[in-house]
Amino acid sequence: MNDWKIFQAGKEPHDDIQHLPPPPSWRKYGDDNKSNENKNKRGATFQARAEDVELVNAALYLRRPLLVTGKPGTGKTSLAYAVAYQLQLGEVLYWPITTRTTLKDGLYSYDAIARLQDIPQKGSNNSGSSENNSNNLSEIGKYIQLGPLGTALLPSKRPRALLIDEIDKSDIDLPNDLLHVFEEGEFEIPELVRIAEKLKDVEVRTAYKDKTEHTYQHIKVNINQGRVQCNNFPFIILTSNGERDFPPAFLRRCLRLDIRDPNEKELENIVKAHFLDKNNEVEFLKEAEILIKEFLKQRDNQQELATDQLLNAIYLMTRKYAPAGQNKDELIKQLFKSLNP
């Protein structure tokens, strides 16, 4: 293959797709083991600043959530993976927030419709028997799943890790709704509380997925009398792009970290962390330095750029077959397109 372009206008069908090089380290997919390795690498390559380290440790000591604010692409979410990776907290529980998100979405879900649909099938021969009713009651756990926040509040020997992403996009009530949970570290599942006298322990699913993490053994847990109470407050990072203000009562219960754009030296360290295993390191660093300077030039001209745009450009421009000449300059321009509307 003597051209970097796999797809070309007007070309007949071909098999050149098989010649694609390995994907960037941050864009690998596959089985559970590989998926988990990629998440770990995301944490391992994060370059934390001194102020990041100070606030993370303060949050760990004080058992307080950490509200992290910054522009898109500054590493807000990666910080959560970095802490979980180094402190061996297991899988990072992820809760993305939208305008429709409620507190219950984070705590648990109960599929009442599926349960109702299953009851006639299992009880069609003797739907009124006490034995059948008892069986239906014992299987309620099949229809309940803890959400990311609910899973994070399960008892554990070490804190669990929870990332609440883009809290500033939430409904106006959600930050206040979180206050009681953050203060008490507990919640109840009403569907289980109502049957606690007849069925004290119910096994339910959690939000954990990764099979290679030690937290995967908690993919299912027993809930006693419908109540979940943490004994180690989870390490919680809430990210915000600064699109709204939060009520003082909410801010009082969080520590706040503002992540700034990385400077030139910090960008160099980030690039090295992701591309350290390049074969021709001298040529690679020369090309990367040019792209970093162009990236900073565009950012200094009031362009809003994310660090992963720089990583994308470096990955493409340091391939064996890479764009050249005017095509290269035009592609870099497109890759460094501002995030501003």
Rank of each mutant, 00 (worst) to 15 (best):
Y216M: 07
A249M: 02
S127K: 05
E183G: 10
S138K: 14
D210L: 11
T239Q: 04
V271R: 09
H19S: 10
P159I: 06
A322S: 15
K297F: 05
Q298F: 03
V221A: 04
L174T: 07
L137G: 00
S25T: 08
N222D: 06
I17L: 08
G73E: 07
Q229T: 14
H19C: 01
G75A: 08
D32E: 15
A84Q: 13
D201H: 13
D201Q: 14
Y29V: 12
G106H: 11
V204P: 00
Q334Y: 07
I17P: 00
E268K: 14
F187A: 09
Q86C: 05
P24H: 03
K104L: 13
R256L: 00
I314P: 01
R115Y: 01
R319Q: 15
T99S: 15
S78N: 08
D118T: 10
D171T: 11
V282A: 07
V83C: 08
P65F: 09
I97Y: 03
L20W: 03
A249E: 14
D52Q: 15
R158N: 09
E139H: 14
A114Y: 01
V181K: 09
A161G: 02
S78C: 06
L296V: 12
P65Y: 10
Y81S: 02
L178R: 14
L285C: 01
K278W: 01
P190E: 00
L55A: 13
E12I: 11
L60A: 13
K142N: 07
E91V: 09
E294I: 06
L79V: 10
I189F: 03
A9M: 00
F7G: 05
N2I: 05
E304C: 01
P21T: 10
L291W: 05
N279E: 11
D32I: 09
N38G: 06
K157Y: 03
D261Q: 13
D118M: 12
R27E: 02
W95H: 08
L285S: 06
T101H: 05
E91Q: 15
A114C: 02
R160V: 04
D32V: 08
A82D: 08
L276K: 12
S25G: 02
N40D: 09
E203H: 02
L192Q: 08
L192N: 11
M317W: 05
L316K: 06
D177G: 09
K286V: 03
V271L: 02
L257E: 13
G73L: 04
L163V: 08
L149R: 05
I172H: 05
Y85T: 12
G147E: 07
T69E: 07
F284L: 02
P248H: 14
Q117Y: 02
D245Q: 15
P22S: 13
T212C: 00
I237V: 15
